[in-house]
Design a protein around this nucleic acid. Structure first.
Length: 205
DNA sequence: CAATAGATCATCT
DNA sequence: GATGATCTATTGC
Protein backbone atom coordinates (compact mmCIF):
# COMPACT_ATOMS: atom_id res chain seq x y z
CA UNK A 1 0.00 0.00 0.00
CA UNK A 2 1.38 3.37 -1.08
CA UNK A 3 0.57 6.43 1.00
CA UNK A 4 1.55 9.06 -1.56
CA UNK A 5 -0.45 12.22 -2.22
CA UNK A 6 -2.92 12.14 -5.10
CA UNK A 7 -2.67 15.92 -5.63
CA UNK A 8 0.29 18.05 -4.48
CA UNK A 9 -0.90 20.47 -1.79
CA UNK A 10 0.39 23.53 -3.67
CA UNK A 11 -1.51 22.56 -6.80
CA UNK A 12 -4.66 22.00 -4.77
CA UNK A 13 -4.25 25.43 -3.21
CA UNK A 14 -3.82 27.14 -6.57
CA UNK A 15 -6.82 25.38 -8.12
CA UNK A 16 -9.25 26.22 -5.29
CA UNK A 17 -10.55 29.26 -3.42
CA UNK A 18 -11.86 29.61 0.14
CA UNK A 19 -15.65 29.53 0.47
CA UNK A 20 -17.01 32.87 1.73
CA UNK A 21 -19.25 33.20 4.78
CA UNK A 22 -22.36 33.81 2.67
CA UNK A 23 -22.02 30.31 1.20
CA UNK A 24 -22.99 28.99 4.65
CA UNK A 25 -25.71 31.57 5.41
CA UNK A 26 -28.40 29.49 3.71
CA UNK A 27 -30.83 26.73 4.69
CA UNK A 28 -28.88 23.83 6.20
CA UNK A 29 -29.99 21.29 3.59
CA UNK A 30 -28.75 23.54 0.76
CA UNK A 31 -25.41 23.97 2.51
CA UNK A 32 -25.14 20.22 3.07
CA UNK A 33 -25.67 19.46 -0.62
CA UNK A 34 -23.38 22.32 -1.58
CA UNK A 35 -20.52 21.02 0.55
CA UNK A 36 -20.26 17.80 -1.46
CA UNK A 37 -17.24 17.99 -3.76
CA UNK A 38 -15.66 20.82 -1.74
CA UNK A 39 -12.22 20.59 -0.13
CA UNK A 40 -11.49 20.53 3.59
CA UNK A 41 -7.94 21.48 4.59
CA UNK A 42 -6.17 21.41 7.92
CA UNK A 43 -2.51 22.32 7.72
CA UNK A 44 -1.16 20.49 4.68
CA UNK A 45 -3.71 17.70 4.92
CA UNK A 46 -6.69 17.94 2.59
CA UNK A 47 -9.62 15.87 1.37
CA UNK A 48 -12.73 16.24 -0.75
CA UNK A 49 -16.04 16.07 1.11
CA UNK A 50 -18.04 13.09 -0.20
CA UNK A 51 -20.62 12.46 2.55
CA UNK A 52 -22.51 14.80 4.91
CA UNK A 53 -25.58 14.96 7.14
CA UNK A 54 -27.80 17.97 7.87
CA UNK A 55 -28.81 18.70 11.47
CA UNK A 56 -31.53 21.32 11.80
CA UNK A 57 -32.93 23.39 14.68
CA UNK A 58 -35.59 22.95 17.34
CA UNK A 59 -37.82 20.65 15.27
CA UNK A 60 -35.00 18.13 14.68
CA UNK A 61 -34.77 16.01 17.83
CA UNK A 62 -31.59 14.36 16.56
CA UNK A 63 -29.80 17.72 16.49
CA UNK A 64 -27.91 19.00 19.51
CA UNK A 65 -29.42 22.45 18.87
CA UNK A 66 -32.93 21.10 19.52
CA UNK A 67 -32.35 21.27 23.30
CA UNK A 68 -31.62 24.97 23.03
CA UNK A 69 -28.56 27.11 23.69
CA UNK A 70 -26.08 25.49 26.10
CA UNK A 71 -22.32 25.95 26.54
CA UNK A 72 -21.71 23.18 24.01
CA UNK A 73 -24.21 24.33 21.38
CA UNK A 74 -23.40 28.04 21.61
CA UNK A 75 -21.53 28.16 18.29
CA UNK A 76 -24.55 26.65 16.48
CA UNK A 77 -26.52 29.81 17.25
CA UNK A 78 -23.81 32.17 16.01
CA UNK A 79 -22.51 33.20 12.58
CA UNK A 80 -22.14 30.53 9.86
CA UNK A 81 -18.97 28.96 8.50
CA UNK A 82 -17.66 28.10 11.98
CA UNK A 83 -16.50 24.70 13.23
CA UNK A 84 -18.68 22.83 15.72
CA UNK A 85 -16.55 20.02 17.15
CA UNK A 86 -17.74 17.74 19.93
CA UNK A 87 -16.77 14.46 21.57
CA UNK A 88 -18.96 11.43 20.94
CA UNK A 89 -19.04 8.18 22.92
CA UNK A 90 -16.23 9.46 25.11
CA UNK A 91 -13.77 8.82 22.32
CA UNK A 92 -14.23 10.36 18.92
CA UNK A 93 -14.36 13.96 17.78
CA UNK A 94 -17.01 14.91 15.20
CA UNK A 95 -16.67 17.93 12.89
CA UNK A 96 -19.70 19.99 11.85
CA UNK A 97 -19.87 23.27 9.96
CA UNK A 98 -22.41 25.84 11.11
CA UNK A 99 -25.06 26.87 8.56
CA UNK A 100 -27.98 29.36 8.42
CA UNK A 101 -27.73 33.13 9.07
CA UNK A 102 -26.40 34.41 12.41
CA UNK A 103 -28.84 33.56 15.21
CA UNK A 104 -30.47 30.58 13.47
CA UNK A 105 -29.13 27.13 14.47
CA UNK A 106 -28.20 24.42 11.97
CA UNK A 107 -25.08 22.51 11.00
CA UNK A 108 -23.64 19.95 8.61
CA UNK A 109 -21.82 16.89 9.93
CA UNK A 110 -18.88 15.87 7.76
CA UNK A 111 -19.04 12.07 7.52
CA UNK A 112 -16.41 11.15 4.93
CA UNK A 113 -13.58 12.57 2.84
CA UNK A 114 -11.66 11.44 -0.19
CA UNK A 115 -8.01 11.94 0.86
CA UNK A 116 -6.03 14.12 -1.57
CA UNK A 117 -2.95 15.64 0.11
CA UNK A 118 -0.99 15.14 3.32
CA UNK A 119 -1.80 11.44 3.14
CA UNK A 120 1.39 10.21 4.86
CA UNK A 121 0.65 12.58 7.74
CA UNK A 122 -2.92 11.26 7.99
CA UNK A 123 -1.66 7.69 8.07
CA UNK A 124 0.71 8.65 10.90
CA UNK A 125 -2.27 9.93 12.90
CA UNK A 126 -4.42 6.90 12.04
CA UNK A 127 -2.09 3.90 11.96
CA UNK A 128 -5.05 1.48 12.19
CA UNK A 129 -6.13 2.35 8.62
CA UNK A 130 -5.25 -0.41 6.17
CA UNK A 131 -6.41 1.34 3.01
CA UNK A 132 -6.92 4.87 1.71
CA UNK A 133 -10.66 4.51 2.25
CA UNK A 134 -10.26 3.53 5.91
CA UNK A 135 -8.26 6.70 6.55
CA UNK A 136 -11.16 9.15 6.35
CA UNK A 137 -14.47 7.30 5.82
CA UNK A 138 -16.37 7.97 9.02
CA UNK A 139 -16.88 11.09 11.16
CA UNK A 140 -14.46 10.01 13.89
CA UNK A 141 -11.91 8.78 11.39
CA UNK A 142 -11.57 11.94 9.36
CA UNK A 143 -11.13 14.17 12.40
CA UNK A 144 -8.38 11.88 13.65
CA UNK A 145 -6.71 11.82 10.23
CA UNK A 146 -6.77 15.61 9.88
CA UNK A 147 -5.84 16.27 13.51
CA UNK A 148 -9.08 18.11 14.32
CA UNK A 149 -10.11 18.24 17.99
CA UNK A 150 -12.33 20.25 20.31
CA UNK A 151 -9.55 22.83 20.41
CA UNK A 152 -10.92 23.85 17.00
CA UNK A 153 -14.37 24.57 18.42
CA UNK A 154 -15.61 27.85 16.93
CA UNK A 155 -12.82 28.25 14.34
CA UNK A 156 -13.81 30.45 11.37
CA UNK A 157 -13.34 28.32 8.25
CA UNK A 158 -13.96 31.25 5.89
CA UNK A 159 -10.75 33.11 6.85
CA UNK A 160 -7.37 32.38 5.24
CA UNK A 161 -5.40 30.10 7.57
CA UNK A 162 -4.61 26.45 8.17
CA UNK A 163 -8.25 25.34 8.56
CA UNK A 164 -10.45 26.11 5.52
CA UNK A 165 -13.17 24.86 3.18
CA UNK A 166 -12.49 25.48 -0.50
CA UNK A 167 -14.15 25.09 -3.88
CA UNK A 168 -12.47 24.02 -7.10
CA UNK A 169 -12.26 26.83 -9.64
CA UNK A 170 -13.51 24.19 -12.07
CA UNK A 171 -16.36 22.50 -10.21
CA UNK A 172 -16.52 18.70 -10.60
CA UNK A 173 -19.75 17.11 -11.85
CA UNK A 174 -21.43 14.28 -9.93
CA UNK A 175 -24.78 12.91 -8.83
CA UNK A 176 -26.00 13.40 -5.27
CA UNK A 177 -27.65 10.47 -3.48
CA UNK A 178 -29.81 10.83 -0.39
CA UNK A 179 -30.72 8.59 2.56
CA UNK A 180 -31.71 8.65 6.25
CA UNK A 181 -29.01 9.69 8.71
CA UNK A 182 -26.83 7.06 10.36
CA UNK A 183 -26.63 6.03 14.00
CA UNK A 184 -29.35 8.26 15.46
CA UNK A 185 -32.40 7.49 17.61
CA UNK A 186 -34.75 10.42 16.97
CA UNK A 187 -36.07 11.37 13.53
CA UNK A 188 -34.38 8.23 12.22
CA UNK A 189 -36.31 8.30 8.93
CA UNK A 190 -35.61 11.90 7.91
CA UNK A 191 -33.63 11.74 4.63
CA UNK A 192 -30.96 14.27 5.58
CA UNK A 193 -27.83 12.33 4.63
CA UNK A 194 -26.25 13.28 1.28
CA UNK A 195 -23.34 11.69 -0.53
CA UNK A 196 -21.66 11.54 -3.93
CA UNK A 197 -23.23 8.59 -5.74
CA UNK A 198 -20.74 5.84 -6.48
CA UNK A 199 -17.82 7.44 -4.63
CA UNK A 200 -15.76 4.68 -2.96
CA UNK A 201 -14.84 6.84 0.04
CA UNK A 202 -18.43 7.12 1.33
CA UNK A 203 -18.69 5.39 4.73
CA UNK A 204 -21.54 3.10 3.65
CA UNK A 205 -23.67 2.82 0.49
C1' DC B 1 -18.63 -11.24 5.53
C1' DA B 2 -21.94 -10.16 9.75
C1' DA B 3 -22.65 -9.58 14.45
C1' DT B 4 -21.07 -7.99 18.77
C1' DA B 5 -18.50 -6.34 22.80
C1' DG B 6 -15.74 -3.00 24.82
C1' DA B 7 -13.53 1.35 25.22
C1' DT B 8 -14.56 6.02 27.70
C1' DC B 9 -16.39 10.95 28.99
C1' DA B 10 -18.88 15.54 28.27
C1' DT B 11 -23.32 16.83 28.60
C1' DC B 12 -27.76 17.11 30.37
C1' DT B 13 -31.57 14.91 33.45
C1' DG C 1 -26.64 8.43 36.61
C1' DA C 2 -27.84 7.56 31.74
C1' DT C 3 -26.91 8.49 27.25
C1' DG C 4 -24.77 8.97 22.65
C1' DA C 5 -24.44 11.97 15.09
C1' DT C 6 -18.34 5.89 16.74
C1' DC C 7 -14.31 2.74 15.85
C1' DT C 8 -11.83 -1.41 16.39
C1' DA C 9 -10.83 -6.12 17.38
C1' DT C 10 -12.69 -10.42 17.77
C1' DT C 11 -15.64 -14.06 17.10
C1' DG C 12 -18.43 -17.08 14.49
C1' DC C 13 -20.56 -18.52 9.95
Amino acid sequence: MQWRDRVPFEQLESETEILPENFFARPTVEVARGLLGKILTHGRAAGMIVEVEAYLGKEDRAAHASRGLTPRTRVLFGPPGRAYVYLIYGMHECLNIVAEPDGVPGCVLIRALEPLAGIAEMKRRRPAARSLAELTSGPGRLTAALGITRKHYGCDLTRPGPFTVRRWRREPQFEIARSPRIGIRHCADWPLRFYIAGNPFVSRP
